[in-house]
Structure formats: structure tokens, C-alpha cells
Amino acid sequence: MEAVGKIAALAVAAALCALVVRQNAREIGLVLALLAGALILGQALGAVEAIWALLEELGERAGLSPAVLDPVIKTVGIGILTKISAEVCRDAKESGIAAFVETAGAALSLYVALPLIRAVLDTVSELL
């Protein structure tokens, strides 16, 4: 709960600062927003590490191989990074680049999920 308070305070302070700075220097406002985003993600890093460890433990207990669990985790990571990158591009008034980022993110998510798709196909083939 303490981390959420820090993140909220940092986000509001950065948003207000960026709002003031963007009136005179739009580029510096964007850099400020990126820096604030990096600091916010840094605050959440501990939670991400704990979630990763728990997922690995659950996978081991369920008897899932890393080949099954890793693509799911990587796909979620790609989705998060794609969303953040596209929003930063939109904030910089580059919606075309944001669309390309989203398309690339979707393609990379499918690519990362290929081992999982192959495992499902192999399982279905064995059942038939």
C-alpha cells in the first residue's frame, strides 16, 4: 500500500510539473514525463519480481515446464511495454508511430507465444 501512495504522489507531482513546463518547452515536458514513468516503474519493480517468483513456483508445483509458462509471462510483458510506448508516442503527437508500435507488439506477442501454440498442437495431435 505504501508503494501505491509513493507512485500516486510521484505521478501527480510529475503531471503538474509537466503541465507547467510544456507551456514553454514541450520537448522538456515529454522528457520529464518519461523520467517520471521510469521512476514509477522502478517503484513497481519489487512487486514484479515477487509476482515472477510466485508464478515460477506455481508452475513448478503444477508440473508446468518453463516452455509453457515463459511465453505467457513474456507476452504480458510485451503487452505492457507496447501500451506504455504507444501512449508516450501519442503524448508526443505521433499517433502514426504509436500504431506501428502496437502492430509490432501484437506480432512479437504472437512470435513469443509460438512455443505455447506448438505445445498445444502437439498435445491435441497426441489425443487424436
Rank of each mutant, 00 (worst) to 15 (best):
E2A: 10
A3Y: 09
A3P: 08
I7L: 11
A15I: 10
A15H: 11
A18Y: 02
A18V: 00
L19I: 09
G29L: 04
L30E: 02
L30C: 04
L34S: 09
L34M: 02
G37Q: 01
A44T: 04
A44L: 05
L45F: 13
I51R: 03
W52F: 14
L55E: 10
E56D: 13
G59N: 07
G59H: 12
R61C: 06
R61F: 06
A62M: 07
V72M: 12
I73H: 13
G79C: 10
L81T: 14
L81C: 13
I84W: 12
E87K: 06
V88I: 15
V88E: 04
R90F: 09
D91Y: 06
G96S: 08
A98F: 06
A99G: 05
A99L: 05
V101E: 01
V101W: 02
T103V: 00
T103R: 07
A104H: 01
A104F: 09
A104M: 11
G105L: 00
G105K: 01
L108M: 01
Y111G: 03
V112A: 02
V112F: 09
P115C: 09
P115Y: 13
L116R: 14
R118C: 14
A119G: 03
T123I: 10
S125C: 08
E126T: 08
L128C: 11
